[in-house]
Design a protein around this nucleic acid. Structure first.
Lengths: 354, 354
DNA sequence: TTGTAAGCGTTATCAA
DNA sequence: TTGATAACGCTTACAA
C-alpha cells in the first residue's frame, strides 16, 4: 500500500509508519490541507468535501499523528510532570488521582516520577521534564531541611521556569514557584487544643524524620500549643522515625518501651498512625482505653480501622486538582500561593477523658 | 548572548531557548560535533579537548536537549505508558510503584493514565500513547465482559503493535498481547478449601461488578470449590457491587439485611472487604465472632485493621516490575504469558470454627 | 479555500 | 576525528 517512498532510508522502515504526507498523497491534496483538515485548530479553512476525503483517508490508512513532530512544529507540548515521593503511599496516590483528574480535563497527559524521597532523583526528574518541554511541573511532598539540595533544586526549577515552564508544589514553598500550602503548624496546634479540651494532658508525638519540614511543622504546632496549654511535652515523649507505616510501628514500640505515661500519641501522618495502632495492640496496650491516638491527613482507610482514628483532615484529592490549576495558571505576576486548612476530626481513637 | 539568529521568527522567542546550534556556535564547532560530544552514544568520537569545550559551553549556556527533537531524529522514545483504572486504589498504586521502579531502572519515563473504569477513556489513552510513540503500553486492571469495547481496544492495540510498540497487561489476556495473569480462579478455589478446612460451611460472596472478569474469576473459583466441597452457595448469598470500599460496605449491609445465616463472607477484593468489615461492625455483627471475613490482594493496610483480614496474597509491587519486563521484552515469537499464583493467608478474621 | 515552502532541534550519513 | 547536510513529521506564514 505505501511502499518505500524514498530510496535511502536509514532506519528499518517501521511497518506501517503512516505519515501525514502519505495521507495527503493518498487523498490527493497538499500536506498543508491534510494538516488543516485533521488538526485544523481554530482556523477551520478546509472545504467540506475535501475535508471528508482527507479524514476518511487518514482513517483508512490508520494514520496516527506524531506527537513529537507536533510538539516541535508547535513549540509546545501537552505534558504535565508530576513528581511524588512514593506513589504507593495513600497520601500521594490520592493527590495524584486529583492531578490526573484535572490534567484530563485540561487535555494534558501526566508524566509520573517517583523519587523515593531521594533529592538527587528529584533533581534528575526535573531535568528530564525540562527536556520533555513539559508545560508544567508539580512537586508533591515535603522538602527536606537540606539547604544544599534545596538550592540545587531551586536552580533547576528557575532554569525550567526561565524557559517558559511553570511549577507548582504541595507543601513548603521554594522561592519563586507556585505553592499550595497546608497549614500544618496551625492544624497541629488545633489538634492539640481539641485533644486538651476533651481531657488529654500527657502528650507524646511520633515526629517523623527530623529533617522533614512537613513533619516538623506538624509536630511543632502541636508541641507549641501543648506547651501553651500547660502541658509541655518532655523529650522522652518525642520519637522520630521514617514517614512510613513501619516507621510508625517502630516508633510506637520505642515509645511504649520507655513507659513515659503518655495518654495521647500524635503521629504526624495517618500512615504512621496505622503502624502505631498495631504496635500498641501487639504490646497489649488498648487504643483507646489505655491510650488515645491521632494522625494527620485523613487517608481513606482510616475509617475502617478499629478504633476509627482521629486525625486532621486535608482534602487530598481536591488538593491534587487545585495544585494542577496552580501549575497551569500563568504565573505572570509573581508566584501564587494558596492555603489549605486542615480540619480536626475526632473519632473513636480519642474519646473524652474525665 | 544569543540574539535572534534568523530574521523571521514566528513564535515569540521563548526566553533562553538554547539550542544545540547555539552551543555549537559558541564553542566554535559544528553541529555534528556538538551533538556527538553531548550525546555521543556508543560512538565516542570527539577529541578530548573539544569535547571538554563543548560540554563546558553547554553547561554555561544552560543547554537542555529537546527530547522531542531527539525522538524525531532517533525514531524512538523513552516513554512507557501506564494505564490503570484508579490510581488512588491501593491495588493499582502498589502495582504502579513497581512499574515506576522498573521503568526507572530502564531509563524510561512513565506516562500515567487513569481510566476510572471507563472503556472509552482507556481506548483514548491507547491512542494518545500511540501518538506519543510510547515504546510500550502497560494496561492494569480487569477487562469488562463487553465484547464491543474489547474489540475496539484490541484493534487499537493491534495498530499500536503493528507500528512497533509492545503491550503488556495485568489480568486477562487480550489476544495478541503479553500478559501477566493472576490465577484468580484457582486462588479463589484455594481460599474456599482453606476456609472449609477450618470449619466454615455457609459461604457468602461479595462478587463485585457482574461484568468484571477478574471479580468473576475469583468468585467463580471460590463458588466452584465450595460446591465441590458440598457447600453450594445459594444465590441469596451472592451480592454484587462496585469494586470499591463503599461498594463492599453497601454489599455487606445488603447481605446482612437478608439474614442468610452465612458464617463466612468472601469479598473479591481487599478494598471491598474493608468496607464490608465496617458495615458488619456498624450492624453489630462481630468479625470474627459472628462471621468470618476474607478478601483478596493483600494490600498494605490489611495488617492494621482489626481483626487482621484473611486474604489471598498477590505480590502487587513485584507484579508491577514483572509486567514492565514483559512490556519491554521483544515480543518477537508471539505474545508472552506469565502466571502469578495467589497464596492464601489466613489471619484473625477467619479463626477456625469447631 | 488551497498549495508552497520554511522552519522546529536533533541525529546520522557521507565525505573530507 | 570533524564537518556539511539530509532527513525525521509536522505546523504555519505567505502566495496563489
Amino acid at each position: 500500500m505505501s511502499p518505500d517512498r524514498n530510496g535511502t532510508r536509514r532506519r528499518p522502515p517501521v511497518a506501517g509508519a503512516v505519515t501525514l504526507s502519505d495521507v495527503a498523497r493518498a487523498a490527493g491534496v497538499s500536506l498543508a490541507t491534510a494538516s488543516r483538515a485533521i488538526n485544523g485548530s481554530a482556523n477551520r479553512a478546509v472545504g467540506g468535501e475535501l475535508r471528508e476525503r482527507v479524514l476518511a483517508t487518514a482513517e483508512r490508512l490508520g494514520y496516527s499523528p506524531n506527537a513529537h513532530a507536533q510538539a516541535m512544529a508547535r513549540g509546545q507540548t501537552a505534558t504535565l510532570g508530576l513528581i511524588v515521593h512514593d506513589i504507593a503511599d495513600p497520601y500521594f496516590s490520592a493527590i495524584a488521582a486529583g492531578v490526573t483528574d484535572a490534567a484530563d480535563a485540561a487535555d494534558l497527559i501526566v508524566t509520573l516520577a517517583n523519587t523515593h524521597h531521594d533529592a538527587d532523583r528529584e533533581l534528575q526528574y526535573v531535568r528530564t521534564l525540562q527536556n520533555q518541554r513539559a508545560r508544567a511541573i508539580i512537586l508533591v511532598g515535603a522538602r527536606q531541611n537540606d539547604g544544599e539540595a534545596n538550592l540545587r533544586l531551586r536552580r533547576a526549577l528557575d532554569a525550567y521556569q526561565a524557559r517558559g515552564g511553570t511549577v507548582a508544589m504541595v507543601s513548603q514553598a521554594i522561592l519563586g514557584v507556585n505553592v499550595l500550602r497546608v497549614d500544618n503548624e496551625r492544624a497541629g496546634a488545633d489538634l492539640a487544643r481539641a485533644l486538651h479540651d476533651i481531657g488529654y494532658r500527657r502528650f507524646a508525638v511520633l515526629t517523623g524524620p527530623t529533617e522533614n519540614l512537613t513533619a516538623h511543622e506538624r509536630s511543632r504546632g502541636f508541641l507549641a500549643a501543648a506547651e501553651e496549654l500547660g502541658c509541655p511535652v518532655p523529650d522522652e515523649r518525642l520519637v522520630p522515625s521514617p514517614l512510613t507505616r513501619d516507621g510508625g510501628h517502630e516508633a510506637m514500640r520505642e515509645l511504649l518501651a520507655r513507659r513515659t505515661g503518655a495518654d495521647l500519641v500524635f503521629a504526624v501522618t495517618d500512615v504512621m498512625a496505622l503502624g502505631a495502632l498495631t504496635a500498641a495492640r501487639e504490646a497489649g496496650v488498648s487504643v483507646p482505653d489505655d491510650l488515645g491516638l491521632a494522625g494527620f491527613d485523613d487517608i481513606d482507610t482510616l475509617q475502617d480501622v478499629t478504633p476509627a482514628l482521629s486525625t486532621v483532615r486535608i482534602p487530598l484529592r481536591e488538593m491534587g486538582r487545585e495544585v494542577t490549576r496552580l501549575a497551569l495558571a500563568p504565573a505572570e505576576d509573581g508566584p501564587l500561593e494558596e492555603h489549605v486548612t486542615g480540619q480536626v476530626v475526632l473519632r473513636a481513637s480519642t474519646p473524652p477523658r474525665s
